[in-house]
């Protein structure tokens, strides 16, 4: 009983992560502003993937050190990368796209 409960919880977490992936990746296909895409991507790639990693962690608790490392790396790297992408695209946006988005 215990095992099946853990299994179901982990499947639930993985499914929730997948839902977040789809929700966050879909705006990439649409014609939206660059920064709103980045907001959506931070939902999909950071939060959704973190949920999936938690689901995997429930499935194989034996490998927790490496999975914890992966979780840490994922959250920190993706967040900082989002910031760097936003900050670095700023001069380009200001000069070329500012007129286009109004």
């Amino acid at each position: 009983m215990q095992g099946s409960l853990v299994d179901h919880t982990s499947l639930l977490l993985l499914g929730a992560g997948l839902t977040l992936w789809f929700w966050g990746s879909w705006p990439l296909l649409e014609n939206r502003s660059y920064l709103s895409k980045l907001h959506a991507l931070s939902v999909a790639d950071t939060l959704g993937s973190a949920l999936m990693l938690l689901g995997l962690l429930l499935r194989i608790p034996g490998q927790w050190p490496l999975l914890t490392l992966a979780l840490l790396g994922l959250i920190v790297w993706n967040t900082i990368f989002g910031y760097v992408l936003a900050a670095c695209s700023l001069p380009a946006r200001d000069s070329t796209q500012a007129g286009e988005q109004r």
Binding site: L35, S36, H39, S42, T46, V76, G82, A86, L90
Partner: peptide, 28 residues
């Protein structure tokens, strides 16, 4: 601070302005 603000989906830090005294934030 940058990590905390950017992690939440509502807000992204765009950079420092005002000689580093304020964060410029884009929010959705």
């Amino acid at each position: 601070d940058v990590f905390r603000i950017t992690l939440t989906p509502f807000t992204i830090v765009l950079g420092l302005e005002d000689d580093g005294r304020r964060y410029r934030i884009h929010s959705l």
